[in-house]
Amino acid sequence: MSLNKLTDVFVSVLEIEQDEVCDQLSYSEHPKWDSMSHMMLVAELEAQFDIMLDTDDIIDMSSFLKAKQILSKYGVSFDE
């Protein structure tokens, strides 16, 4: 459930296809993931998962895989 929710956030904010979302999806390599969409991702992740990311985590969130790792620190489980 949480993995689907996370995937949906990335699809919605970055306006990409679901099959584009994978662990390798990264800030540095995807043209639609820029500084503005990064902050929109952060805001949507905080809203969807009812958390408040700290500044270091916001800066460190450089890929879909890293987003999963960071959210895990806040108690979000991705076990399917």
Rank of each mutant, 00 (worst) to 15 (best):
V42M: 07
F64E: 06
E46N: 10
D54R: 13
S77Y: 08
D8M: 00
Q69R: 12
P31L: 05
I51W: 06
M61F: 11
L25F: 10
E44N: 13
Y74S: 09
E44I: 02
K68N: 05
K68P: 05
L14A: 00
H30P: 08
G75E: 12
S62M: 04
D79P: 01
M40P: 00
Y27C: 01
D54V: 09
D54S: 02
V42L: 01
S63T: 14
S35G: 08
L71R: 11
D60V: 00
M36S: 06
A67V: 07
Y74A: 07
D19M: 00
I16Q: 01
F10I: 07
D8E: 12
D54N: 15
D34Q: 06
Q24H: 08
T7Q: 12
Y74N: 11
D34K: 04
Y27Q: 12
S72E: 15
E17G: 13
M36G: 00
T55F: 15
D79S: 15
H38A: 04
L6A: 06
S26M: 04
E20S: 10
L6S: 07
L6F: 10
Y27N: 01
S26K: 04
S28L: 11
V13I: 13
S77R: 07
S63L: 10
D57C: 09
M1V: 10
D79T: 14
I70G: 05
F49R: 08
N4T: 04
M1L: 09
D60H: 13
S37P: 01
F64V: 09
K73F: 07
E80G: 14
S2D: 12
D34P: 05
L45N: 03
L3H: 05
M39K: 02
S77M: 09
S62V: 14
Q24L: 04
V21E: 04
L6K: 08
M39P: 04
S2L: 01
K68C: 14
I70H: 11
K66P: 03
S28V: 07
L14D: 00
L45K: 03
D79G: 12
E15K: 14
Q48H: 08
A67P: 09
S37N: 13
D23F: 05
L25Y: 02
D34R: 02
M52V: 14
L41I: 06
V42N: 01
Q24I: 03
K73W: 00
L41Q: 05
N4F: 02
A43Y: 07
L71K: 12
S37C: 03
I70D: 03
S77K: 15
S72F: 03
K68I: 09
L3E: 13
D50G: 05
A67E: 07
I16A: 00
D79Q: 15
A43E: 09
I70Y: 07
S63Y: 12
Q18N: 09
E15A: 12
S72V: 05
T55D: 14
D50S: 14
D8S: 13
H30N: 15
L71T: 12
